[in-house]
Design a protein around this nucleic acid. Structure first.
Length: 948
DNA sequence: CGTTTCACG
DNA sequence: GACGTACGTGAAACGT
């Protein structure tokens, strides 16, 4: 292969060996059809694909290690000696990764006796000498010594560049001094000895003081600290050897000249053949999309690529087992989707549904807002592949976006009233199960037409009950995971963004294909998931919590809550005027105008223009400017305080005052949120459009917004909230005796904690001490960490760790709970609440310690947060019926995790309060008897703020 | 479309 | 000893 002698301008050097290890540990196990593990190959291939697609390089090579033994072992026989053998699953992948590089038609280089890093150093030098710039694709710290002067590094996994600043952040010195620092601090991974007792921090300090290693070693006797001085004298030679080990060799006689690394076009057929042979379907299809004509040329004599499961599915839930459970993968069943345009056809489908006893259904509407939405069509599925679409509100195509001047004709459809009249008996028939995906929405739609759909199953809730936390619960995602099937996307039929035309304007055939498929997939999901819920002992959670909650939440959404529009408008104007004042003041303080809302510009003003102390912190090189940082800076300068004031008003104005006015429903004059029942992994609800679970309450300015949430005339808003529910559950679940007793006594729990942990009497306690104890109690619920607590309390991590230690000593049961919960999660991949709800945490086995620790804290929190969610859900299910039975008209409007908000006639408030308390406090019975009491506090007023 | 910030429990 | 920090959410604004 002779390369045209083009002078290199940009050379990419990919650290192949480094990447294989990283990909292997970062990705979940994955096997191709013949059982060969290929997860690292997939990671590697994805990386190359992206790299080749994005790079402007004209020369590129992947560099590998040829063998474990290199010239460095002759310098120091212990070099990399204690490094464990590669895991057996990785070994076969070394070869395949080289095949992958070949398939991409990228040059690859390796050389006996040298590490990949030495070859990279050599090519980098050659490239610079030829006038090219160099990008080293790697995150290996051993390569950082090469950075600078036209050489940069790029971490393909984190997609970030590593330049001199990043190197300085890591080593505390510039790239040219990295070798000296490494010589001192050594490297336990590579078994580079360094000097005992010297870490990165100390090494950087020393090198910054003395300039380089040799100067330091020669002037070692001057060093003040006796221990350090002696180490440097005793281990000077070891430091020199270490330096020789870490310094890369840039004069290797490379086997391939730089000129031969020129970027070559790949052969799409060959690449496709390789990818398909590994079973990398996603990547193969992307290649195919880019090269439509490509035909895979046989690469390996292998069976058809089979279940190398899509990466989305390769979590803790054993996707292969699920897939093998699949009754009929859609691809193999003939699809018969029918357009229903006559009453006779409609009756035929209704009869089929009644005969089956189960029908999947889906509604198409002209709005995502269930309160405003009008029906455009209905789809039904009665058996896999057998589905129909009944259009009722489609308009002529031309009528959609523009004025219907030509009177574009409405396609033939059965009148809506007729369809509804015929469907009503079916949808309300107790003997016919109706199955929807996110059925709450469809229940709402039909309720607005006077149809009470029942009984109903929801495949989104079934999937969530089984696998919350493992993956998303949208239908498209589930179809891909369970059936390996790509659904038609809404935006493909109805457009999106500017070209969105609304479903009513979609031509009937396209609408049929999309809508009928939704019902079809829903039916198939139901056949798969419903039996699993029983088999896997999750029926109680689904049947007693999730399923009965659907109609209750649907009613709350429909009820909505009244907001005082005029008051919100006044607030918006007030906030706006005050913002203008602040803005002027800020610009004066800053010495010129800038966009206060831009963290980037603000950071530059604070830290560069004004030169305030603090500085960079983000991984993206951006300055941090959050409230904590500005609060600290406020001691030094007036500007940060003003920015904090401005930000508060900006937030209140845009997110609340203005947005809520926009959200007032023109039909009802109220605000209707939408609750997501399968959004949060822990079992909590989530509120969207608008989010009514984060209405301000903590500050006086913020509470003005809450004051605009009001009752109808003659009514009050009544707020009932569980006191300390998660801490009570922690006491119960972890069996913390002292905490349980305190709750039984009705003690001030934070004061009690403070008294126990800090050994001070509750009487006359310093509020500061109680505040600390409160933070620790919260920390317990969150899976406490020294760093987190330190940040919360503005103390040092060491002090925080002391507090935690004292807490564990006083309440030893909590430690057991934490350890057992983590162990359970590692074994099963999920944790459970006392009511049996599961929360999956795929990250619990992550090889990255930070991500794993994150999952461990989540594992500790989820059973507590989840049990609290179970309890309030149980109360919500019982309340409407209990209130009705007592002859009370209270309507449940909102849920905010541990609080329920009702609208109550003024004449009934006295009688309503005890009912709310009784049902909510008794919500665990009869399945669970808590060892601590639950306490509910009730308040009432004409606004939500005052009802607290 | 991802990041940053901030509102809530 | 590295990782990069308290748990769970959603919305708005900025800037690429």
């Amino acid at each position: 292969m002779s390369e045209s002698p083009v002078a290199p301008r940009h050379v990419y050097l990919v650290d192949g060996s480094g990447f294989i290890f990283r990909a292997f540990h970062a990705l979940p196990p994955l096997n191709r059809a013949d059982g060969t593990p290929v997860n690292a190959v997939l990671g590697f291939s994805n990386m190359l694909y992206k790299l080749v697609g994005e790079t402007d390089a004209d020369h590129i090579a992947v560099i590998f290690d040829a063998s474990r033994i290199t010239f460095r072992n002759r310098l120091y026989d212990q070099y990399k000696a204690q490094r464990p053998e590669a895991p057996p699953e990785l070994i076969p992948q070394f070869r395949i990764v080289r095949e992958a590089t070949e398939a991409f038609n990228i040059a690859q280089v390796e050389m006996v006796d040298y590490e990949a890093d030495d070859l990279i150093a050599t090519y980098a030098r050659l490239a610079r000498a030829a006038g090219a710039i160099v990008t080293i694709v790697s995150s290996d710290k051993d390569l950082m010594q090469l950075v600078g002067d036209g050489v940069a590094m790029y971490d393909p996994l984190k997609q970030r560049a590593i330049g001199p600043d990043e190197v300085r952040e890591k080593f505390g010195v510039g790239p040219e001094q990295v070798v000296d620092v490494q010589a001192l601090c050594g490297d336990s991974v590579d078994n580079v000895p360094g000097v005992p007792g010297i870490g990165v921090k100390t090494a950087a300090e020393l090198i910054n003081t003395y300039g380089d290693l040799e100067t330091l070693l020669s002037r070692a006797p001057e060093i003040k600290q006796p221990k350090r001085r002696q180490s440097l004298i005793d281990f000077a030679e070891q430091a020199r050897i270490s330096r020789a080990l870490v310094e890369l060799k840039s004069d290797v006689e490379v086997p391939v000249p730089l000129a031969d690394l020129g970027l070559r076009p790949s052969d799409p057929g060959k690449l496709l053949g390789f990818l398909q042979a590994q079973g990398f379907r996603q990547l193969a299809s992307r290649v195919q999309t880019r090269h439509p004509g490509a035909v895979p040329t046989a690469a390996a004599p292998m069976a058809a690529p089979s279940e190398a499961a899509p990466s989305a599915a390769s979590s803790s839930v054993a996707p292969v087992a699920i897939a093998s459970d699949t009754p009929q993968p859609p691809a193999q069943v003939e699809k018969r989707y029918e357009l229903v345009q006559t009453e006779a056809d409609l009756d035929r489908w209704i009869a089929r549904a009644e005969a089956e006893g189960v029908v999947a259904f889906d509604t198409e509407t002209n709005s995502l807002d269930a309160v405003l939405a009008e029906l455009v069509g209905i789809s039904l599925a009665v058996a896999p592949g057998e589905a129909c679409y009944i259009p009722v509100g489609h308009v002529g195509e031309a009528a959609a976006g523009e004025l219907n001047l030509s009177g574009a004709e409405r396609p033939p459809q059965i009148p809506l009233d007729t369809v509804l009249a015929r469907l009503k008996p079916l949808l309300e028939a107790p003997a016919v199960l109706k199955v929807g995906h996110n059925a709450k929405y469809d229940i709402q739609i039909f309720r607005s037409y006077g149809i009470e759909v029942a009984p109903v199953d929801c495949t989104m809730l079934l999937a969530n009950t089984l696998e919350a936390g493992a993956h998303g619960m949208g239908m498209d995602e589930l179809a891909l995971i369970y059936f390996d099937y790509e659904t038609i996307k809404y935006k493909d039929v109805a457009g999106s963004g500017k070209s969105h035309k609304g479903f009513a304007a979609v031509p009937l055939e396209a609408a049929r294909d999309y809508a009928a498929e939704d019902a079809d997939i829903t039916l198939r999901l139901h056949r798969l998931l419903k039996p699993r819920v029983g088999r896997e002992r999750m029926a109680t959670v689904y049947e007693t919590i999730e399923r009965p909650l659907m109609p209750v939440v649907a009613a709350m959404e429909r009820a909505g809550i009244k907001v005082d529009r005029a008051e919100l408008l006044r607030l918006s104007a007030d906030f706006g005027e005050r913002m203008v004042d602040y803005e002027k003041e800020i610009h004066v303080l800053a010495g010129g105008p800038f966009n206060i809302g831009s963290p980037k510009q603000l950071g530059e003003v604070l830290f560069e223009k004004l030169g305030l102390p603090g500085g960079k912190k983000g991984k993206n090189g951006a300055y941090g400017t959050d409230a904590g940082i500005l609060e600290d800076l406020a001691q030094t300068h007036d500007l940060p305080r003003r920015v904090l004031d401005w930000r508060q008003l900006a937030k209140l104005k845009s997110t609340y005052a203005d947005a809520l006015v926009e959200q007032i429903n023109p039909k009802t004059g109220r605000v209707h949120t939408s609750y997501s029942l399968a959004g949060a992994a822990t079992g909590r609800l989530a509120s969207t459009d608008p989010n009514l679970q984060n209405i301000p309450v903590r500050t006086e300015e913020g509470r003005k917004i809450r004051r605009a949430f009001v009752s109808e005339p003659g009514h009050v808003l009544m707020s009932a909230d569980y006191s300390q529910i998660e801490l009570r559950l922690a006491a119960h679940v972890a069996g913390i005796e002292a905490l349980k007793q305190a709750f039984r006594n009705g003690d001030d729990i934070h004061a009690m904690t403070a008294s126990q942990v800090f050994g001070v009497p509750v009487e006359g306690m310093d509020p500061m001490v109680r505040r600390r104890a409160k933070a620790i109690n919260f920390g317990i619920i969150y899976g406490i960490s020294g760093f987190g607590l330190a940040q919360q309390l503005s103390i040092t991590p060491a002090e925080a760790s002391e507090f935690i230690k004292a807490y564990f000593q006083r309440f030893p049961e909590i430690r057991n709970y934490m350890d057992e919960t983590k162990a359970f999660c590692r074994e099963h991949g999920y944790v459970k609440t006392i009511f049996g709800r599961k929360c999956h945490l795929p990250g619990i086995k992550d090889s990255n310690p930070a991500r794993r620790a994150f999952s461990e804290r989540a594992a500790i929190n989820a059973p507590l947060q989840g049990a609290a969610a179970d309890i309030i859900k149980r109360a919500m299910i019982r309340l409407p019926a209990r209130l009705a039975a007592e002859g009370l008209k209270a309507r449940m409007l909102l849920q905010v995790h541990d609080e329920l908000v009702f609208e109550v006639p003024e004449s009934e408030t006295e009688r309503t309060i005890p009912v709310l308390k009784e049902v909510m406090e008794g919500a665990c019975a009869p399945v669970i008897e808590l060892s601590v009491p639950l306490v509910v506090e009730v308040g009432q007023a004409h606004s939500w703020d005052e009802a607290h």
